[in-house]
Design a protein around this nucleic acid. Structure first.
Lengths: 251, 251
DNA sequence: AAGTGGTCTAGACCACCAT
DNA sequence: TGGTGGTCTAGACCACTTC
């Protein structure tokens, strides 16, 4: 494999941490120990531990050994992009059912989001998702034309569309943009989620891209209030989430 | 100042970018150029540019010069922690009014969040916040006892409590945890925000800490639907926001 | 082919932590 | 006081981009 030396060292440390060789709270070997063991220079070892630090696995203080903070890398990208992967990680039983799957012209907003020609064909999918048997989320997605054939071929009860198209067509989600707000349940939402009309829903709209920057899908997910909470940790040093004005605020 | 060499170089580059010497889209000088100009080694220059890259200001590809992506560092920490600072950055006219300010024993949850003794005194503040004259958010905050005296002394129409206590008592917010979900408006919410009871609100609860890890406040902010949207960009490489199960999901 | 960033080495000094 | 991480240097080779 074309992996660099420091990535090898990082991966080995990651596995040692995950497998309990270095449990959370324990101190990692010193840089010089690691350098000696791996027959690498101290600089290379520092690149490796910097990588683990950026993943939140270890912490450091000048003068003291590095400390193990967590065993698992936080997989929040997957957790934010894929309901199925998140639910699995939570240990919940998840099921899904595609209710509608139709090809239709894109609306102007959809075309703009997917960076497609206005009025070009998109695949619209309406899907209801359950957690431990309870209906929890209504998902309305439009897929770009180049992904549509793969999605059209999937079974109705496909648990993870993203995982499936990654397997079948090697189309992999790489990054995304998410817009989170609250909306009132429409009549379709209310019927599917078994809540009253106009009751509060948490909405997560997201746009998913490949590594090359090609838009895959534009989704509107609506969660029953109380079923999920989005969580952010931020600091003066690094902070990735921000607040934006909605359409209700005068410009 | 005790600043290190690479931080000096980074700060100088930051200013050059901000002031337009290196506009977005342009290419930065090469590492060797910068090293020569600063009479530093290439390694030190690399530390500096790595810092800017981590702030999202510049991007890089092997073999090509680094490219300037943005002029401003994204200040999402402030924007997420301080309504006033966010609104100011948006160019909105913001006003606030403290409606209630009482000292009372902490509930169990509040004590746990603030890491205080159960039943110890906290300062509870109810505040209504306007954007361009419209009531947009209801804020209910409990302050830890050691901050309470400063907050109690502030005027009713204080625009930013966080800014004020930073000025007056040198208590500075450094990091925080945020929980975002949707709730139905209670009768107090409805009256203050001028919406119907049970209509959807976007709720942002947050816990704010000093750099030393001392909890400053625990807040429940409720936004009228449509007034704000939270925005996240994430990628397989780095992703800070995640989804959590709410109380409604069976464990 | 020349230039550039990505990786790696083998040293060095300092500030800070542990004991 | 000795060990540790934080910073810095002056080289080197390679993969990749640019021309």
């Amino acid at each position: 494999m074309g992996r660099s030396r420091y990535e090898e060292i990082a991966e080995s440390l990651r596995q040692a941490i995950r497998s309990g060789v270095h449990p959370p709270g324990s101190r990692l070997p010193s840089e010089s120990d690691l350098a000696a063991r791996w027959e690498a220079s101290r600089g290379t070892v520092r690149q490796a531990v910097a990588l683990l630090a950026s993943e939140g696995l270890i912490g450091s203080r000048q003068g003291a050994r590095r400390v193990v903070l967590r065993q698992e890398r936080r997989q929040s990208f997957e957790q934010l992009n894929s309901f199925a992967q998140w639910a699995r990680a939570m240990g919940c039983e998840v099921s899904s059912r595609i209710l509608t799957r139709t090809t239709r012209p894109a609306t102007d907003e959809e075309a703009a989001r997917l960076d497609a020609e206005p009025g070009s064909e998109v695949l619209y999918v309406l899907r209801l998702r359950h957690l431990d048997g309870e209906p929890v989320m209504v998902e309305r997605t439009v897929y770009a034309d180049w992904v549509a054939p793969v999605v059209r071929a999937l079974p109705e009860d496909c648990v993870s569309i993203m995982d499936s198209i990654a397997e079948r067509a090697d189309i992999v989600a790489h990054h995304g943009e998410h817009l989170i707000d609250a909306v009132a349940a429409g009549s379709e939402d209310a019927r599917l989620l078994r809540v009253r009309r106009a009751s509060p829903l948490l909405r997560q709209r997201h746009l998913t891209y490949t590594a090359a920057g090609r838009a895959i899908e534009w989704t509107d997910d609506r969660y029953r209030a109380g079923s999920v909470v989005f969580n952010v940790m931020n600091s003066a040093a690094a902070a990735p989430l921000e607040r934006r004005a909605g359409p209700g605020v005068a410009g």
